[in-house]
Design a protein around this nucleic acid. Sequence first.
DNA 1: GTCTATAAGGCGATAGAC
DNA 2: GTCTATCGCCTTATAGAC
Lengths: 211, 211
Amino acid sequence: MSAAATAGPLAEPPAARRRAEKNRTRERILDAAVVAFAEQGYEGTSLATVAQSVGLSQPGVLHHFRSKRGLLMAVLERRDQIDRIRFGMDSVDGRDVLDHLADLMTHNATVPGMVQSFSVLTGESAAENHTAHDHFTRRYAGLRSHFAKMLTGAQERGEIRPEADCAAAATEIIAMMDGLQLQWLHAPQEVDMVTVFRSFLDRLRADPNET
Amino acid sequence: MSAAATAGPLAEPPAARRRAEKNRTRERILDAAVVAFAEQGYEGTSLATVAQSVGLSQPGVLHHFRSKRGLLMAVLERRDQIDRIRFGMDSVDGRDVLDHLADLMTHNATVPGMVQSFSVLTGESAAENHTAHDHFTRRYAGLRSHFAKMLTGAQERGEIRPEADCAAAATEIIAMMDGLQLQWLHAPQEVDMVTVFRSFLDRLRADPNET
DNA sequence: GTCTATAAGGCGATAGAC
DNA sequence: GTCTATCGCCTTATAGAC
């Protein structure tokens, strides 16, 4: 019999399990932070409100993230990881790239809290002094280059108008998504961002009657 | 001789002049607030920094605006007034409406501080609790209806593709402007928002070879 | 019209007990 | 790993002198 088994039900849980528990708390804090940033923005959010919504004290939150800035960075990094999975898969299979983009917008329409959180953070980060300014600058540059590559491939397959400039189109598509989300967040029942986005994409699409 | 002239150089200036002086101070505070909001956002800005940049004490600023919220509202109202003049004129003369929109973007590229200030405020205001949320909701609704009217007129004059949905196009154009400005603010030397905006507008333009 | 002084409270972060 | 207590600072807004 191992030492742990001998110790009985009062024994310390194994290290692996304790680590998992800690990570679960971390995740709960991150989720709460996303909600708080959506409702108040980063500057408008206090660690105390995040702490309260996960049932911890304010120093309890700072045990998991060394500072408020650290919490924001963790939120942004986790989002980038999810993006890498989602966007990475988009370019693999054989479906129409523009349909994929429309699907992405359709998905976004089902998670308004996420969209609101990152729209507010993106706007705040336009201020050069903002903690997340550089992060969003890098994010935009990465998105533009990834989208441009995807669109070039689609153009070679005849999915996109042959005269289109794919780098410019990448910038346009990202701008349209961000801008539509802003209007949708301000008037969800008035702005049908999925339909408008589709009609925008359709003007980029190659005419099926040609070639 | 009037009473004022008799009183000599130590006399009180006439009421009209004192009012003008006060208004000039108000304007200086408003200008400083726009700059501060651009650099820090509304939530990140303190009245003390605005006060310092116009050479007043913090209560000195609150003498002109009853609260921080009041200062923000005054900034937004002044912007709306300028917009009303600019957009009101656009629809009057006979020039191409899409060219006017491109000119607007060209103008915006020369006033990055303004663009930054209102982009940050728009993003912050996507949070439903934000002080300016309702203001931006109304602003967006007004812009959409004004743009849709302008575009319908242009479509009747044959400037815009006859199959285009003008209400959707209005939403698209506003979204593209907001979105391009966000990317441009994060990387002004990488994103040529005027050129990209022009190529976007060109796809809305009626084909000159038809009709 | 602008100031100084101050009220009244929120903030992020740290120290140290358990 | 989480708490309580606390430090030190910053915030908006008001009261009252000049």
